[in-house]
Amino acid sequence: MLKCLAACALAAALCFCGGALIKGYYMYRAAIEEVCLEDKVSAIQAKENYTAFDQLPEIYVDAVLSVEDHRFYSHPGIDVIAIARAAFNDIRAGAFVEGGSTVTQQLAKNLYFTQEKELERKVAEMFLAFDLERSYSKNEILELYVNTIYFGNGYYCVGDASQGYFGKEPEDMTDYESTLLAGVPNAPSCYAPTVSPRLAAQRQAQVVARMVKCGYFTEERAHETLAAEIDW
């Protein structure tokens, strides 16, 4: 009896996943047929405050990758390890509590899709992530990503955020400013420094701790960075 129930559950799960895969593929096809990827990218690059990769401080890049996608330069657009971990946590919680999305998948979402956590949309993201990885270099993908994320206060790219929060170009950001800004997109309504300096500082501390864990910072440099607090 138990074996029969297990077999039925497995069959139902496979049917559900197969249906989501098909629907996700058609969602992906509909999206790129409406506006091709090259046109989407060109529109982003035409932004007034678009920031090129070589204008980003190395510390800012390291901070973003530490908290968003530390295997970015080694995966093909999706991170199987992160997806498996997220799936396990989601199943345990009985809800979508962890995404497992790479920077490439997040860029795909920002270019074409809504923020709703639907399985079909996640599948469509994966197809688009593969397209992005085939068409653009890793640095170009990361460059596009930081020019399409929301930083709070109406700032929708790193250039606007750097100017708005610090009054300077991204390339001139200090280690303190870089690590602070890298933490904001996770929850801009909470972590924007002009909304809550306390929560922004707590998030920044998490970013710096991840940088230490990922090998980008020593403990000493982490302490020095966080000690350089500025007034808001």
Rank of each mutant, 00 (worst) to 15 (best):
K122H: 11
P76E: 01
E133M: 09
K117W: 14
E171A: 09
F96P: 15
E143W: 07
I78D: 01
G167F: 09
I78Y: 14
N110S: 04
E116M: 08
Y112C: 10
K168W: 01
Y176C: 03
N139F: 00
K117H: 14
Y165F: 14
D69L: 06
N139P: 00
E125D: 09
E133H: 00
V80N: 04
F130D: 05
A187E: 14
I81G: 00
N147W: 01
E116R: 14
E133F: 01
Y155W: 10
P76L: 10
L142G: 03
L132Y: 06
G152V: 05
H70N: 15
A82S: 15
L119S: 13
Y155H: 13
D79M: 04
A182G: 05
V146G: 04
A161V: 05
I149V: 10
L132A: 04
I83R: 03
G183A: 11
E171F: 12
N89G: 00
Q115F: 13
P188G: 10
G154A: 05
G77Q: 06
Y136C: 02
I81H: 11
Y145S: 07
E118S: 13
T174G: 04
V184A: 12
L142V: 01
I149W: 05
S162L: 06
A84E: 15
F96T: 14
E125Q: 15
N153E: 15
F151A: 06
C157K: 02
N89P: 00
I83W: 02
Q105V: 07
A161M: 07
S101R: 13
I81T: 12
L132T: 02
P185M: 12
K117L: 13
S101W: 10
L128E: 11
S178F: 03
G183I: 12
E177Y: 06
N153I: 02
G183S: 13
R85L: 07
F96S: 11
S162M: 00
A129Y: 05
Y176A: 02
P188M: 13
G164F: 01
T179G: 06
D131K: 04
M173Y: 07
D175A: 15
A124N: 05
V184Y: 13
C157Q: 09
A95R: 15
F127H: 11
K109M: 12
D79E: 12
A84P: 02
L132K: 01
M126W: 10
D69R: 09
E98N: 08
A95E: 15
G94K: 11
A108D: 09
K109S: 08
Y176E: 04
Y73S: 03
A86K: 07
F72T: 00
K138D: 01
A187Q: 10
N139M: 04
L111V: 05
A124T: 10
I81D: 15
N147E: 02
I81W: 11
H70V: 09
A129S: 14
Y165A: 03
Q106P: 08
N153H: 14
E116Q: 14
N139R: 11
F96L: 10
Y73K: 09
L180R: 06
G159Q: 03
D79T: 05
V184P: 13
G100E: 08
A93E: 13
E169N: 10
V158F: 07
Y136D: 03
Y73P: 03
K117S: 12
Y136L: 09
I83S: 03
